[in-house]
C-alpha cells in the first residue's frame, strides 16, 4: 500500500494513512494488517496492527501505532508516497449485527488498544445505537482521538497520573459515572480486559486481544490462547485467525 500521511498525534503515537485496493476487502471493524516494516531480513517478522478506520471510496485506511521497538520505529520513518508491504485485512472483527438501535453500547479502550474501537464506534453510531466511550491512557501526553470518538457519542477519558480527564483506571470511570450499557466492547491491556470481565460477568458484546504473532494467518500457532471451557486442556483459539475479536468469556485472558 502507499503511504498518504504518517504523523505523530501523541507522544510516540503515530497515525498512518495508507491507500490500496485491499481496503475494499475490509468486512468489519477490528480487523488488522500484518505489516513488514523492512524489505531486509532485519527486522524479520511482520507486525500486526489493527485498522482504525477506512474509507472505501478513496481506498484509504488509517492505522495507529506506538513506536515501541525496531519495527514500529522504521514504520514511523515512512514518508508520503513510500510503499509498505501489507498482508491483510486479516482476522475477524467486531460483530454489531446483534446490537439493536435502542440499545446502549459501552466502548472501553486502553492505550494502543483504542484504535480498532474507533471504526466500531462509528459503525454503531450509524446503526442508531447510543454509544458511550471510556478511554484510558497513561498520561496527558499519550491521549489521542478523544475528540474523534465524540462523533459517535459521549466520551470519558482517564489517565493513570490524572494529568488528563479523571485520575485512575477506566473501570473507576465506569463506577464513578454509574455508566449503564446493554453491550460492552473493549480492547486494551489484558489486566483491563480481565477487570471488565470480572466486574461484568454477564456482559454481552466482545473484546479484542493483542498477542505476539508469527504468520498472522493461523499456520504457526504462535498466538494461541486457552478457552474458558477447557482452561487446562488442548482446546484453543488462535488470536490471529479465530480472533482477534472474541465474545466475552470465550477465551482465558
Amino acid at each position: 500500500m502507499i503511504v498518504r500521511s504518517n504523523r505523530e498525534i501523541a507522544e510516540n503515537i503515530f497515525e498512518m494513512t495508507l491507500q490500496g485496493e485491499i481496503v475494499q476487502e475490509i468486512t468489519a471493524p477490528g480487523q488488522f494488517l500484518h505489516i513488514k516494516p523492512s524489505a531486509q531480513p532485519v527486522p524479520l517478522l511482520r507486525r500486526p496492527i489493527s485498522i482504525c478506520n477506512n474509507n472505501k471510496q478513496n481506498n484509504e485506511l488509517t492505522i495507529i501505532y506506538r513506536t515501541e521497538g525496531e519495527g514500529t520505529t522504521l514504520l514511523s520513518e515512512r514518508k508520503e508516497n513510500d510503499s509498505v508491504d501489507v498482508l491483510g485485512p486479516l482476522g475477524n472483527g467486531f460483530s454489531i449485527d446483534e446490537t439493536k438501535q435502542e440499545e446502549t453500547a459501552l466502548i472501553v479502550g486502553g492505550g494502543v488498544g483504542v484504535p480498532p474501537l474507533y471504526s466500531l464506534a462509528l459503525a454503531l453510531f450509524e446503526r442508531g445505537v447510543k454509544v458511550t466511550t471510556v478511554l484510558g491512557f497513561a498520561d496527558a501526553a499519550s491521549v489521542f482521538y478523544e475528540n474523534r470518538f465524540k462523533e459517535a457519542g459521549e466520551v470519558y477519558v482517564s489517565t493513570i497520573d490524572g494529568s488528563a480527564g479523571s485520575k485512575g483506571l477506566v473501570t473507576d470511570v465506569i463506577d464513578n459515572e454509574s455508566l449503564q450499557f446493554d453491550r460492552l466492547y473493549a480492547c486494551g491491556p489484558t489486566p483491563m480486559l480481565k477487570a471488565l470481565e470480572e466486574n461484568y460477568p454477564n456482559a454481552q458484546g466482545s473484546l479484542s486481544l493483542e498477542e505476539r504473532m508469527g504468520c498472522g494467518i493461523g499456520a504457526c500457532f504462535a498466538c494461541v490462547c486457552h478457552t474458558q471451557n477447557d482452561p487446562g486442556g488442548s482446546e484453543y483459539r488462535k488470536v490471529c485467525s479465530d480472533g482477534p475479536v472474541f465474545p466475552w468469556r470465550e477465551v482465558v485472558l
Binding site: 524479520l44 505476539r212 504457526c220 504462535a222 498466538c223
Partner: peptide, 27 residues
C-alpha cells in the same frame, strides 16, 4: 492431542526468530 507451551511462543532475533510452540497438534 497437545496444547503446547504457554505464550509468548515466538521472539524475533536479528535475521531470525525463536519459537517454542511445543508441538501443538490435534493428536
Amino acid at each position: 492431542p497437545r496444547f503446547g507451551n504457554e505464550t509468548p511462543r515466538v521472539a524475533e532475533t536479528p535475521a531470525g526468530m525463536l519459537n517454542a510452540i511445543g508441538l501443538q497438534n490435534p493428536g
